[in-house]
Amino acid sequence: MSNSIVKPYIPLCEPNLKGNEKKYVAEAIDSNWLSGGSFLNLFEKQLAEFTGAAYAVGISSGTTALQISLILAGVEPQDLVIVPNLTFVATANAVKYIGAEPILLDINPETWVMDLNLLRNFLEKETYIEEDSCYLSVNHRRIKAIIPVHLLGNMCDMNDLLALANKYHLTIIEDAACSLGSFQNGKHSGTYGVAGALSFNSNKIITTGGGGAILTNDAGLAKKARHLITQAKSSTTDYFHDTLGYNYRLVNPLAAIGVAQMECLPMYIKTKQEIVGYYQNELSGIGAQFQLISSNTISNFWHVSFLVKNRNELISFLQSQNIETRPLWIPINQLPIFRACWGIDKDW
């Protein structure tokens, strides 16, 4: 019999469900309100109050939150939407879902969010304005919107982006899937643009198992979002649907999990910030390059990530020690469906 000690397995991340989740889910089930109900209303209220958004609309996922937000922003088939080249594929997929095409913008190598100098140069040299819309000069297609992704909790410089967006008539939709609990100049991620998309997937800082939310300060857009995600049913009794709708509601039992998670969110953020501080201190001697947090930004530090040489060797070694790590996402332009997309990079 071997005397070797088996080390406990340390996963990359796992949900923390040690609060009132079971209690609230049981209450939601006992209420017999599943599609909607008091927990959904409360969860949306918690999100709005925490983020400072006027409205929060619960939805089935962060991806569907992006898709509906693009529709709310008036993006139409054949339009172009600027997205960062380094993001989870859902950002670009949501653009494709509505028949639009992404323009892939390279990231700042230090902050890992959109390189706004590249964006400014591109807009000045390769676009033109006509009737309050921005068009790509090479093919005269409208560039309707831009989606900054607040990667790993870090935020794009939103004041700079707002100025560019206003000048070139671009609508901002924020992908805040990673950044619940991140603030810039005292303002929460997802509240700068016309809409912001949150995700509550099982690996996010809070989870509902599956789910998301749309943040907006526009009452009309919040009302339209609720209408679209309930199959665009325009009457509570008659089955009259006045436009193309979607079955994208966040259900009450999952919202009940969200209510319990929101009670713990400040503690989760504090813990994440302490963890990244520990890693930055302990790994300073191995040449690890950590993400530079943007000016005036408080990050939720959703995941601890860093650049390091011989990445695959490090991953293999940690795996041998029962420690799970993963590489960050493959750039969007290297995925088969997006290889033909227009790109903005440092060689442009």
Score class of each variant (00 low, 15 high):
residue 182 S to A: 07
residue 55 Y to L: 06
residue 274 E to F: 09
residue 215 L to T: 00
residue 245 G to N: 07
residue 54 A to Y: 10
residue 36 G to T: 13
residue 335 L to V: 09
residue 113 V to E: 00
residue 263 E to N: 10
residue 43 F to K: 04
residue 167 K to P: 09
residue 277 G to M: 06
residue 30 D to L: 14
residue 309 K to A: 12
residue 225 A to S: 13
residue 120 R to L: 11
residue 139 N to I: 10
residue 12 L to E: 10
residue 150 H to T: 12
residue 228 L to F: 10
residue 93 N to R: 09
residue 242 D to S: 14
residue 121 N to H: 12
residue 341 C to K: 05
residue 207 T to G: 07
residue 195 A to Y: 05
residue 41 N to W: 02
residue 253 P to A: 11
residue 241 H to F: 14
residue 118 L to Q: 03
residue 326 R to D: 04
residue 264 C to W: 04
residue 18 K to F: 08
residue 67 Q to I: 08
residue 53 A to R: 01
residue 12 L to P: 06
residue 136 L to A: 04
residue 173 I to Y: 02
residue 189 S to D: 04
residue 169 H to L: 12
residue 239 Y to R: 12
residue 203 N to K: 09
residue 165 A to S: 15
residue 100 A to P: 09
residue 303 H to N: 09
residue 231 Q to H: 11
residue 170 L to P: 01
residue 197 A to P: 03
residue 195 A to K: 00
residue 32 N to P: 03
residue 53 A to E: 03
residue 85 N to I: 04
residue 157 D to W: 08
residue 128 Y to P: 02
residue 327 P to Q: 07
residue 154 N to K: 08
residue 279 Y to P: 01
residue 31 S to Q: 12
residue 282 E to D: 00
residue 132 D to A: 13
residue 182 S to Q: 13
residue 217 N to V: 06
residue 258 G to M: 07
residue 251 V to R: 00
residue 73 A to D: 04
residue 301 F to L: 05
residue 105 L to D: 02
residue 310 N to W: 06
residue 237 T to I: 15
residue 212 G to Y: 08
residue 33 W to F: 11
residue 152 L to K: 13
residue 35 S to R: 11
residue 269 I to M: 11
residue 240 F to E: 09
residue 237 T to D: 13
residue 187 K to G: 08
residue 320 S to C: 07
residue 74 G to A: 04
residue 105 L to P: 02
residue 164 L to Q: 09
residue 219 A to P: 02
residue 142 R to V: 03
residue 169 H to Q: 14
residue 155 M to F: 00
residue 237 T to H: 15
residue 335 L to I: 10
residue 66 L to I: 06
residue 277 G to T: 02
residue 131 E to I: 10
residue 248 Y to I: 03
residue 187 K to I: 14
residue 330 I to T: 13
residue 345 D to R: 03
residue 112 W to R: 10
residue 74 G to L: 01
residue 196 G to Y: 01
residue 178 C to I: 07
residue 274 E to M: 11
residue 39 F to H: 07
residue 224 K to L: 15
residue 245 G to A: 06
residue 98 I to S: 04
residue 34 L to P: 04
residue 243 T to F: 01
residue 214 I to W: 01
residue 214 I to V: 14
residue 29 I to L: 15
residue 141 R to P: 00
residue 211 G to N: 05
residue 286 I to R: 03
residue 342 W to R: 03
residue 155 M to A: 14
residue 18 K to W: 03
residue 241 H to K: 12
residue 87 T to D: 05
residue 340 A to L: 01
residue 66 L to Q: 03
residue 163 A to S: 14
residue 250 L to K: 08
residue 40 L to Q: 10
